[in-house]
Structures are given as C-alpha cells and as structure tokens.
Design a binder for these strands. Structure first.
Lengths: 232, 232
DNA sequence: AAAAAAACAAACAGGACTGATTAAAACAGG
DNA sequence: CCTGTTTTAATCAGTCCTGTTTGTTTTTTT
C-alpha cells in the first residue's frame, strides 16, 4: 500500500522484524504508544487525579472509542501507563548517569552521581511517580499496580548504583546505608516544594550529603554505622 | 431552655465566656467543628482526592445544606479544614515533644526528640498533610491555601526545635543544617511506603541520623558544614 | 471481489458531584 | 404569641465521567 509507514518503536512490537509485521499491527502499536505518551503527559500537566479518559484521548489525538479498544477500562490504561513510566524512569536515570564524563574520578565522580540523581528526582517523570505513590495510599488498584513492578524497579536502581559506585559496592551494609541516606534525604527534599529559602537549603544539604557519603566509606568498621553516641 | 447544652470547644467560639454566647451560636460552632473533624477524618480514610462534600456531610452527621450554610463552597471547606489540620499538626508535635521525660538529657534526650518527630511524620495527620502538599502541584487553589499558612507553620516548627534542642539553638547555620538533615531524610523515608526491607532500613537510618546529629555539633567549624572532600 | 476482522468513532445511559434554590425547624427578642 | 433571623434539610439543575452499544472505516483473509 502506498501510504507512508512510520517505523513502530521496539516497546510496542516485540521480537519481530518490521517486514514480518502487518501494517495494521504497526499502526495499532503506534496508536498504543501515542496513548501511553499522552497519558504520561497528562499525569505531568494535570496531575494524576485530574486525568480522565477523555483528556488522554484528546491529548493522544484519538477518539475515546479507539482508546477503549486498546485499553478497555481506565484501570487498564493506568496500569499500562505506570509500567511505561517505570521504563522511562529507568531510562532517564541510566541516561543521566551515562552522561557523567568518564574522566571524572573519585569524589568528583561520586558528587556527579549524586547530582545526577537529584536531577532525576526533580524531573517531571519522578515528580509524577511520587504523586502516584502518594495517591496509592487511598487507591488499592493503583497500589497493586505500583507494587507489581516495585521490586524490578529497585533491582534496576541497585544495579545502576553498583555500577556508578563500583569502588564501594562490596562494602555490604555500608553501601546499603549510603544509598538509603542519599535516596531518602534527597527524595524528602525534592518532595518539599513548599518551603522558605529553598535554594540555600538545597545547596547546603547537597554539600553535606556528598561529604557524608565520602565519610561512610572512609571510616573504619563500627564507626559511621555502628556507634550511636560518642562519649560526651 | 431545658435541653442539654454541651460546652463548645475553644476553637469554635473565641474570646467569650460560655455564658455570654447564645445557645444558637454555641450549637452552630459545634456543628462547624464536627464538619471540620469529619473533613480531616475523610482526608485520612479516603484520601484527599476522594473527599466529596456529600461524604464529609455524612461523616459529620449533617445534611449537605447545613454544611453549605457553614462553608458555601467546597473550596472554603477545604481551606478551613487545612487550617484546622495545621493547628492539629502543631498540637500533635508539641504534645509528643512534651511527652519526652524531663529526666532525659544529652544524646538520649535528643534521640527521643528525633523519635518524636518520626512518630509525628508517620501519624495520620502528617500523612494527610503530605498528600495535600503533593496534590497541590496540580491544584492552584489548594497550593494557595497551603502557602497562606506555610510560613506560620515553619515558624512554629522552628520554635519547637529550638526549645527541644536548646543547647544547640545558638549554633547558627549548623543548627539549620541539622534540622534540615533530620527533616528531609525522615520525610523522604516516611513517604516511601513502597519499598523492600522497610523495618531494617528504617532502623539503620534512624541510628545513623542520631549519630550525625551528635557529630554536627561536636565538630569544629568548617568541618561538617564547610568541607566538601577530604584528602584522598 | 467479497466477507470477516480489527481499528476507530459517535451516541447513549447511568451515576456522581457541586452549587443553587426552596422549604422546614429552631431560636431570639419584643 | 408573633415576627424576624438563623440553622438545618430536601430537592433540583447542570456538568462531568466511565462503560456500553451501535455504526463507520480500514485492513486482512478467503
């Protein structure tokens, strides 16, 4: 057929050469991807709770009937969109980490890793992910959707961090602690948009965090982790 | 009149002895308080986005018309409920801090303060507050409501912390850093319900945090704050 | 070329929600 | 007891949302 046939993305058509796939299947997969992209954009622009099937369809440039063909219920749309979001988050973090210059080594490299995570956390995708997690407290369907890929998600983050901080990955519990300290402090900070003197406080905490990370791995055993108080 | 007249709360009728206020005004104030209590309970039980005026009215045991009399729009109801929530949050934290035994001193006392904040953060009221803050990104009305009392809220938290850590309050930037490290790490942790090995990770981080707080105030100037890397 | 299947689109029905209106009950003051 | 005010309650209208049904167009299969 003489119409232009844009190549579908890998995520939508699996394990087949383009020439083996009918034009209809390609077109259908492209529609599906447009819908998922539109759903993510609606999460970002409207907030999760304001997203409706009509708005996603409009943003995707398809009719509601067409969208219902691909996702027979709103819940199935949300589920597919959340899985899609997970994929994009992983890709986003991996991309930011791979952008760190190979010439950077030692503390400068690790600081760049911390900053890459901060950029990741303050990006639209993670903001939306955080909103979904927050909304899931009172939305059992959403909670189940998020939980179903949470372990895979954490696994990938762990592997990325082990690659990024290769010199630290064999330090056992100390490594876990360092990753958690970074994660929770930065996620708490990123989530707190309503606060005074934000830039000053962000800068101070990023500096403090980088120093603590260096310390966690410099100190001897039962130092950063094991002791609870020093003699007064 | 011979009917039983329950005494209204101070929050609903201000600066007047009960005997100077008509029964009708007392009754109206009590209805208003019941509505606000019901709204907070709906935030907790249903999640902010699932709260409707019908549900709040039902939970309060009043009709929608009655509720509309007190709060002519849903926005006004939300605004009053958020201010009410702020008051309860302040009261909750103040109460938890005042429950710390006076006999506790030094690191044990400070550790108790950290744990009081953790209990505060994981309580229903703060969970709801966090959800409201998260939802406000895509809800300008809600954001304006929260911002209008954010400064007063932070002011009270700062005063509580200065009272709790009186021995540290004169340390300037170091004190601000310590409070922020505690706040953001714990808020990040409290907000992360979806994660594996939660209890183990919470325990480790709480211990680490207490140690860091002690360190921040023990080290000399340009130590915890100023340095970024140690000589490798 | 024709029939069948898939993708897409439009219309409809039912339910939920908010704000407004009207009515009833309770209260205050003379 | 009467009148006016306030509080409370019931009903209505309009809007929005989702899922279902029906119809149209495109593509695939025979």
């Amino acid at each position: 057929m003489a119409t232009k046939k844009p190549k579908p993305t890998k995520t939508s058509v699996e394990a087949k050469a383009p020439s083996d796939i009918s034009w209809q299947a390609q077109k259908s997969a492209m529609t599906r991807d447009r819908i998922l992209d539109a759903a993510i954009n609606c999460f970002i622009n409207l907030g999760y709770t304001n997203v409706t099937t009509a708005k996603v369809a409009q943003a995707a440039g398809v009719s509601r009937g067409a969208m219902l063909h691909h996702f027979p219920s709103k819940t199935e749309l949300i589920q597919a969109a959340v899985e899609y979001l997970h994929d994009k988050l992983i890709e986003d973090y991996t991309q930011r980490v791979s952008n760190i210059p190979a010439a950077l080594q030692g503390p400068a490299r690790r600081r760049a890793g911390v900053e890459a995570y901060w950029e990741h956390l303050t990006g639209d995708l993670f903001v939306v992910y955080h909103e979904l997690c927050t909304a899931s407290r009172s939305d059992p369907e959403l909670k189940a959707i998020l939980e179903s890929s949470q372990q895979a998600f954490e696994q990938h983050v762990r592997e990325s961090n082990e690659a990024l901080f290769a010199e630290w990955k064999d330090r056992g519990e100390r490594f876990l602690l360092a990753m958690d300290v970074t994660k929770f402090m930065m996620e708490g900070l990123a989530a707190s948009r309503l606060m005074t003197h934000r830039e000053e406080r962000v800068s101070r905490l990023m500096n403090y965090l980088s120093d603590r990370l260096e310390e966690i791995f410099e100190e001897e055993e039962s130092s950063a982790i094991g002791r609870h108080t020093k003699g007064a």
